[in-house]
Computed example of a mutant assay.
Amino acid sequence: MNAILHKDFLFCVSDNEARSTLLDLRSGLEKGVTAPYLGPGLVALTAGEVSVPASPEAVAAALNIKAPAPSRIRTNMWSVAQYIEQRRHRNTLKAWMAEIFAAAPKPSALHRWLATLPLPLIVDSWYDGAMRAALKESDRQDFISIQGITRAGEVRDIWTRVYRADDAACDDAVTAQARTVLYEPHGGARPAGNFLVADSDYVEVLTEIDIQTPIPDSVKERRATLGFFFLGCRFHDQMLRTYARQILKRSKGPHYAVMDAASLSRNERRFLAENGITLIDMPLDDAVAILAQESMGAAAATEQPVRIS
């Protein structure tokens, strides 16, 4: 069925219409006209194997074990990280984040399927690196990853670093050769432990993001022909909404998100409605099963990969 949620005019599909929409999105992913935007919720799909935090709140809890923060900020990852940076130094925060995300990434069936597709752009908004691991496991050499970096200690006008499939850092110019750009806006545990996590990491980014300076040119170019499909994401924090809004900017659309309609906060409903994102009201694991299991044998044949050097 279709529904409009509240006065925010959020378009929502559920039941048979949700399944039909997912099948259309599966086709869009296979054709390379839809870009997946992946969030921490996908970590929980590896049932019984979860070894890294699956939400910002879980990261905050892990950091609190190492250095208890004041109760008023204890559940806010960005504030807890800032508290640690101010009292224990940035290097301590980086080391602890590396420990928290030290476990080898565990790509899900969805990650592995996406890795077989000729997607122009994939956005992975979590630190664990499961999507990158899936691309590497597929023996693809035709992708590059672009990670957001903290500007702490930087004297250059730099916002991101670029890595080839072999983990070697490279110049921005190589992105033109890549079939797939994996954009990790908040950084990643691998290959170099780049973490945007403390409030201070985002001060300059949020100052500039409205004029798109921190967004890589390759992302701006590729999104112009794409719609975004949010999987495993929540938007209950202003930081998450700001980043997603700016990455969506000037993209072609349409946009979709798999989320539980009953659990949406007022701010999440408003964010989805204002950005024209259709809500697919379905449990994430059910949606992933439809996408990955039905798609494994139906993925379109791809050309021979081009090695990026």
Rank of each mutant, 00 (worst) to 15 (best):
A3T: 00
I4A: 05
F9G: 05
F9W: 06
F11E: 11
V13H: 05
A18I: 07
R19W: 01
R19Y: 08
S20F: 05
G28Y: 01
E30Y: 10
G32F: 02
G32M: 03
V33A: 03
P36W: 01
A44K: 07
L45S: 02
A47W: 00
G48Y: 06
E49V: 08
E49G: 13
V50N: 02
S51V: 09
A54T: 02
S55D: 07
E57H: 01
E57D: 04
E57A: 07
L63I: 00
P68H: 00
A69L: 03
P70D: 03
S71C: 00
I73L: 06
R74V: 02
N76E: 10
M77E: 08
V80M: 08
A81N: 10
A81Y: 05
I84G: 01
Q86L: 10
H89F: 14
N91P: 08
T92V: 15
L93W: 10
E99G: 11
A104M: 14
P107I: 15
S108Y: 15
S108W: 11
L110C: 15
W113P: 01
W113T: 07
L114N: 08
A115F: 04
A115S: 11
T116I: 10
P120N: 07
L121E: 08
L121G: 05
V123T: 09
V123R: 13
D124P: 06
Y127E: 03
Y127H: 10
Y127C: 10
Q141G: 11
I144Q: 05
R151W: 00
A152Y: 04
A152M: 01
G153M: 05
E154V: 00
T160K: 04
R161N: 06
D166F: 03
D171I: 07
D171V: 10
T175D: 12
A178N: 07
G188H: 02
N194Y: 12
F195S: 04
S200F: 13
E208Y: 11
D210Q: 15
I211P: 00
I211H: 11
T213H: 08
T213Q: 09
D217V: 00
V219Y: 04
K220Q: 08
E221H: 12
R223L: 06
R223S: 11
A224E: 11
A224Y: 09
A224V: 05
F228G: 04
F229C: 09
F229G: 04
F230L: 11
C233L: 09
R234K: 12
H236Q: 10
M239Y: 10
M239S: 09
L240R: 02
L240M: 12
L240H: 04
T242S: 06
Y243N: 05
Y243R: 04
R245E: 09
Q246Y: 01
I247A: 01
L248T: 06
G253N: 03
V258P: 02
S263A: 08
S265L: 14
R266G: 15
F271N: 07
N275I: 04
G276I: 13
I277A: 12
T278L: 14
T278C: 14
D281Q: 04
D285R: 13
D286P: 09
L291F: 10
Q293S: 12
G297C: 08
T302A: 14
E303H: 13
E303W: 13
V306H: 08
S309D: 12
